[in-house]
Amino acid sequence: KELVLALYDYQEKSPREVTMKKGDILTLLNSTNKDWWKVEVNGRQGFVPAAYVKKL
């Protein structure tokens, strides 16, 4: 599985998104969309802005 690092805090704005804190390590589930990547964090799956994370 591929991991990404949260570069910034992000507060979810819809049920399809997830909240993350700067420094969190997230599991990358899908990065086919250039703007929104699907990740898993704390057992929850959802989208975060691709610009807010970096592949490890």
Rank of each mutant, 00 (worst) to 15 (best):
L3Q: 11
V41N: 14
Q45N: 08
N30Q: 11
G23V: 01
D35I: 15
Q11V: 14
Y52G: 06
L56G: 04
T32D: 15
K38A: 09
A51H: 11
P49R: 04
L26D: 00
L29P: 00
K55I: 14
D24P: 00
T32F: 10
L5C: 09
L7P: 00
R16T: 13
N30A: 11
L3H: 11
V4T: 03
S14W: 07
M20Y: 02
R44L: 08
W37Y: 08
Q11T: 15
N42K: 10
L5R: 09
K13Q: 15
V48I: 09
P49W: 03
A6D: 00
Q45D: 08
M20N: 00
M20A: 02
D9G: 06
W37G: 00
G23R: 02
F47R: 04
E12A: 14
V4Q: 01
D35N: 14
F47G: 01
V4S: 03
G23L: 03
L28N: 01
N42E: 11
V41Y: 12
D24A: 08
N33K: 07
E17D: 06
T32E: 14
L7G: 02
T27W: 14
A6M: 02
K38V: 14
V4C: 11
L26T: 01
L5F: 10
L56S: 04
G43W: 05
L28F: 03
Q45M: 11
I25K: 05
D35Y: 15
S31E: 13
Y52E: 02
G23M: 03
E17M: 06
R44E: 06
G46Y: 04
E40L: 09
K55R: 14
L29D: 02
G46Q: 02
N33Q: 10
A6S: 06
W37Q: 01
E40Q: 09
K54M: 15
N33A: 09
G23A: 03
V18T: 06
V53K: 00
T19F: 05
I25S: 03
T32W: 10
E2M: 13
A6G: 03
V48W: 00
T19A: 08
K13N: 10
K1T: 12
T19V: 03
N33H: 12
A50C: 07
Q45S: 12
N30D: 15
M20I: 14
R16Q: 13
P15H: 13
E12Y: 05
K21Q: 10
Y10V: 01
P49Y: 03
K21V: 09
P15I: 11
N42Y: 13
K54Q: 14
R16K: 12
D24K: 03
K55N: 08
K54A: 13
E12G: 15
G23Q: 02
A51V: 10
G46H: 02
Q45H: 09
V48C: 05
I25N: 03
R16E: 13
L28D: 00
M20H: 01
G23K: 02
Y52V: 07
F47T: 03
L7E: 04
P49G: 01
M20V: 11
D24C: 06
L29Y: 05
W36K: 02
I25L: 11
V48A: 04
K55E: 07
L26K: 00
T27Y: 13
L26V: 07
V39S: 00
T27N: 09
E17K: 05
Y8Q: 12
E12T: 08
V18M: 11
T32N: 13
E17A: 06
F47P: 00
M20G: 00
V41R: 15
F47I: 07
V53C: 13
M20T: 03
E12I: 07
P49H: 02
L3T: 10
L29R: 04
T19G: 09
W36T: 02
S14Q: 08
S14P: 06
S14D: 12
A50L: 02
L29M: 08
G46L: 05
V41M: 13
L7K: 05
K13M: 14
W37T: 03
V39H: 00
V18N: 04
V39D: 00
E17C: 08
Y8R: 15
D35R: 14
L5K: 08
T27D: 06
V48F: 00
P49T: 01
L56V: 13
L26M: 15
A51K: 13
L29K: 05
G43L: 06
V53D: 00
N42H: 11
G43H: 07
A51D: 10
Q45R: 12
E40F: 07
T19H: 05
T32S: 15
G23D: 06
V39L: 04
W36A: 02
E40C: 11
L5V: 15
P15G: 10
Y8E: 10
K1N: 11
N33C: 10
K34D: 12
I25T: 07
N30W: 09
P49L: 04
L26F: 07
Y10N: 01
S31T: 11
L56H: 06
V4I: 08
K54C: 14
Q11R: 12
L56T: 07
W37L: 05
K34W: 08
V18C: 09
R16L: 14
W37M: 04
A50F: 02
E12M: 13
S31I: 07
L56F: 11
V4Y: 12
V18A: 05
T27G: 07
D9R: 03
E40S: 09
R44S: 06
Y10S: 01
K21I: 09
N33R: 10
P15W: 11
N42G: 14
N42F: 11
K34F: 10
N33G: 10
V48L: 02
V41H: 15
K13L: 11
K22A: 14
F47H: 06
K55C: 09
V39G: 00
V41G: 14
F47S: 04
Y10C: 02
M20C: 07
S31P: 06
Y8H: 12
L5Q: 12
L7W: 04
K1G: 13
V48Y: 00
V53M: 06
Y10I: 01
G23F: 05
V48H: 00
V48K: 00
V4G: 13
L3V: 10
V48D: 00
K38Y: 15
V18Q: 03
T27C: 09
